[in-house]
């Protein structure tokens, strides 16, 4: 079992004072498209006994919801994972299973 490595997300503080009136500016943040975990029908679950830390699920995740720890262990950020299933489809050891959400 590994925890989501929150440190990987880069969110700088941006000073937009005075510019808001001139341009419609957005600032970086999580969930700009909403709470995307609500879209999920199937939930990816990692079997850490089968995981070989090859990082394929991490690099192939379109959402950056699989985070990489310092020891190359991977963990899924369930707050935003949309459940597309790319990670389970690509895992070479079939360590990720898609489980039906309640």
């Amino acid at each position: 079992m590994a925890d989501v490595n929150e440190e990987v997300y880069v969110i700088p503080e941006i000073d937009t004072k005075g510019l808001e009136k001139e341009f419609p500016l957005s600032k970086p943040g999580f969930g700009a498209g909403g709470k995307t975990n609500e879209w999920r029908l199937l939930r990816p679950v990692i079997n850490y006994e089968k995981c070989i830390k090859c990082l394929i699920c991490w690099i192939d995740c379109p959402e950056a919801t699989i985070t990489r720890g310092k020891d190359n262990s991977v963990a899924i950020n369930y707050d935003y994972c949309k459940g597309c299933g790319v990670c389970a489809n690509e895992c070479p050891t079939k360590a990720i299973e898609m489980v039906k959400e309640d």
Partner: peptide
Amino acid sequence: LRDVKFEEKWLPGNAACPGCGLSL
């Protein structure tokens, strides 16, 4: 693959469809 950066500057919770190639 392990030489690729840890940092994520494309943040989770974006509005792309599940499995979007462009988002990746």
